[in-house]
Amino acid sequence: MIRPIVCFLLLLAAAAHGQETFRNPLLAGGPDPWCIYKDGYYYYMHTMGNRLELWKTKNIAFLKDAPHKTVWTPPASGPFSKDIWAPEIHFLKGKWYIYFAADDGDNQYHRMYALENSSPDPMEGTWVFKGKVADIDDKWAIDGSVFEHHGKLYMIWSGWEGNKNGRQDIYIAAMKNPYTIQGKRVKISTPHYAWETKGDLGDPDLKHVDVNEGPQFLKHGKRLFIVYSGSACWTDDYALGLLSADENSNLLDPASWTKKTEAVFKQSAENKVYAPGHNSFFTSPDGKEYWILYHANDHPGDGCGKKRSPRIQRFSWNENGWPVFGKPLNTDTLLQVPRS
């Protein structure tokens, strides 16, 4: 009887080990992924295009098994009825907020909007539409993200300087509350390095677009970072760049922000990962591991559509307190789940 018992125990151990490891991607598809960890759960969203969908899970590595639901459906027509992009869920000032970009079907009218939910569990309660989130210039805007620093709220996003496409810059503005921008926007990044200016369209009226988008806030030690996506998402050159500022600097002063000249996370042909970008960050449940969540393609030329899938991997910090992301990992790589 000893041998069957040993085999059974070995099978149990293998099964247990299987629950401690995973492989990317988290889902077969899911562009512009975002997640937040709060009170023992990860809440996850990505671009669905025609609605806002929310996932809830104790283990982000097994997102495919997590319950999810539609928490908001847009009206049939109007300024925020179509092209719903890059949703993010945040917990601010004791309530939940979802930020997203939308238009009426015409990209030039893309703007950012907010929903509010006072329920402790964002899968429950009522999501109340709070309206457009814009500064007084009210220009084209997407990829809004909000963070709190020294007790103040700030929004960062990607926008046009004028009313025509051709270049997307990164802007920041102070907020009066989680759904109201206070004062004018300030431009803190514009694409000008070679790595962030890949964006040929093949359109005779709009031959090229230089892109900075998807800004995400990250803090470590006494430095603040904004990690953003550079070059156009329809190119394999889509990659992540880095802005940094001292924690005590004036975040609304463009001079406070310094940009790295090279991409900090980019395609890896050897690992068969292309166009990695539009990221967010989270920590493991025990708070000791730092993880990046991003989307990427499996093949060159897959473009800026539904083939993009969400992936996660750990990153570290160098001796100067700057993030080190390494290379995007091959989907054959077996990874340990975030440590609880």
Results as ranks from 00 to 15, higher is better:
G125F: 08
C35W: 01
K222D: 15
R23L: 00
L224K: 04
Y42A: 09
K187A: 05
A16E: 15
A174G: 13
L26R: 04
P33L: 04
A296K: 11
L12G: 14
S256Q: 06
G30C: 08
L54I: 02
K198F: 01
D203L: 14
V209L: 12
D103G: 09
T333L: 00
Q216C: 10
E270H: 02
D104R: 07
L218C: 01
D106W: 07
W157D: 07
S229L: 06
L242A: 04
S309A: 15
F91M: 01
R308S: 04
M112Q: 14
D298H: 12
P87D: 10
I142K: 14
I142S: 13
K69W: 11
C35D: 07
P122H: 12
S119D: 15
T21W: 03
E196Q: 10
L92K: 09
L243K: 01
P285E: 03
D121E: 14
N297T: 08
N50I: 00
P191E: 11
I188C: 14
H299I: 12
F315K: 08
V146Q: 03
L63E: 13
S119Q: 06
Y228V: 02
K207I: 11
V71S: 02
Y113G: 05
R3A: 13
D103R: 01
K82G: 10
G78K: 05
V211T: 15
G49Y: 02
I36D: 10
I172A: 08
I60T: 14
Q168T: 02
E88W: 02
K306H: 12
N177I: 06
A14P: 00
M45C: 04
A232T: 03
D298Q: 14
G230C: 09
G241K: 03
D169M: 05
V128Q: 13
L201R: 15
V227T: 12
I5M: 15
P74Q: 00
A194Y: 03
T57N: 11
D65V: 01
Q168A: 04
G162V: 01
G94F: 13
G221N: 06
R51C: 15
Y113S: 06
P254Q: 08
A15F: 10
Y99F: 07
A76Q: 14
Y44M: 12
G162W: 06
P323L: 02
T197I: 11
F129N: 05
A194P: 00
E289M: 12
D302A: 15
V6C: 10
R51G: 04
L52H: 11
Y37P: 00
